[in-house]
């Protein structure tokens, strides 16, 4: 009985992990595309927040989750293009530009939310047909009866909404694009040595714009997930630093898709566990403050950056505007 309960707890924690990790994974992949091209992207947070707002608003007005998704991706891409214009075309500071987008999103989503919906910054609560709802995998009831693997599939893998699966598929696709395609080759090259790309006859600017647009689309999906899949409305500041955690996860994964995925899952797991551990003493350790667990992703990233666990080497040309003429 006791062990069954424990198994149940473990499975539901893993289930929650997947749900919490979804926006992290999407944003980490977004950051990966941008930073591999040499553009620092601390604006994951702002793009995701604005996309969440757009998705929440459009879903509330039209009742269509698909239009909401399109709106989320669109607004996030527009912000990406703004970031690109500042960093690529005017050769502005990439960190400052990212920060500007974050601050702008933080203020503007609330201003517009209150102006349009008068609900204190929230968008109206959504009916289930305006949202992405959980999907049951086919034959899952039969599979669920299988020993061991069955409950895992039924509880952890099945029963999520479409966007969770999109996030999971985004990782192998990212890996494939980055390592197996012509675009990926050029992307990896332009973050290391843009001059080599330029002399090979490829436009550095265009390549970088493509990368930031992909980042925008992915952040858009992440924001949409927050507002109309995981939750039933946009709430003010609902990203709550997840964009930064995703950035940390991407650094933790050393700018590579699969390690970044693992870092996202680890950070998501910490988050899922933190809620369950509140007030529960662990054997041998005692009660672990929930704040410690919440701060762990940041602490671990700092420790990694300090070179105490492996060495995180960023793409060489990151943060440096490309200037051709002397």
């Amino acid at each position: 009985m006791d062990s069954l309960l424990n198994a149940q707890t473990v499975l539901s924690t893993l289930d929650a992990t997947l749900r919490v990790s979804t926006p992290l994974i999407l944003c980490a992949m977004a950051g990966l595309f941008s930073e591999r091209s040499g553009i620092i992207d601390i604006s994951l947070e702002g793009k995701m927040l604005f996309a969440a707002f757009a998705a929440g608003a459009v879903a509330a007005v039209t009742g269509s989750p698909w239009l909401a998704l399109a709106a989320g991706m669109l607004i996030s891409t527009v912000l990406s293009l703004l970031h690109g214009f500042a960093c690529i075309t005017t050769r502005g500071d990439q960190v400052v530009s990212g920060l500007a987008i974050n601050v702008l999103a933080s203020g503007l989503t609330i201003v517009l939310g209150i102006a349009w919906f008068s609900q204190g910054g929230q968008t109206p609560a959504l009916a289930s047909d305006a949202r992405f709802m959980p999907l049951e995998l086919p034959f899952i009831e039969q599979i669920g009866n299988l020993p061991f693997i069955g409950p895992f599939l039924e509880i952890v893998i099945s029963g999520h909404n479409l966007l969770v699966y999109v996030a999971l598929i985004a990782v192998p696709i990212t890996w494939w694009v980055v390592y197996k395609t012509r675009f990926g080759l050029r992307l990896r090259a332009v973050g290391e040595n843009p001059l080599a790309v330029d002399t090979a006859g490829i436009s550095v600017s265009l390549l970088r714009y493509k990368a930031v647009v992909i980042a925008g689309v992915l952040c858009g999906i992440a924001g949409t997930y927050l507002a109309i899949a995981q939750n039933a409305a946009f709430a003010r500041e609902m990203t709550a630093g997840q964009g930064y955690i995703a950035l940390a996860a991407m650094i933790f994964g050393k700018w590579r898709p699969v390690p970044a995925l693992l870092a996202c899952l680890m950070f998501g797991f910490l988050d899922a566990v933190a809620i369950r551990l509140q007030g529960v003493p662990l054997p041998g350790i005692g009660e672990v403050p929930v704040q410690l667990i919440q701060a762990l992703p940041y602490l671990l990233t700092v420790i990694l950056l300090a070179g105490f666990i492996g060495k995180a080497v960023a793409p060489k040309a990151i943060g440096v505007p490309f200037a051709k003429e002397r």
Partner: peptide, 13 residues
Amino acid sequence: AIQGLIILFSGAL
């Protein structure tokens, strides 16, 4: 939001 615009125009752009 205005703060964001100022960081954008006085900083990034």
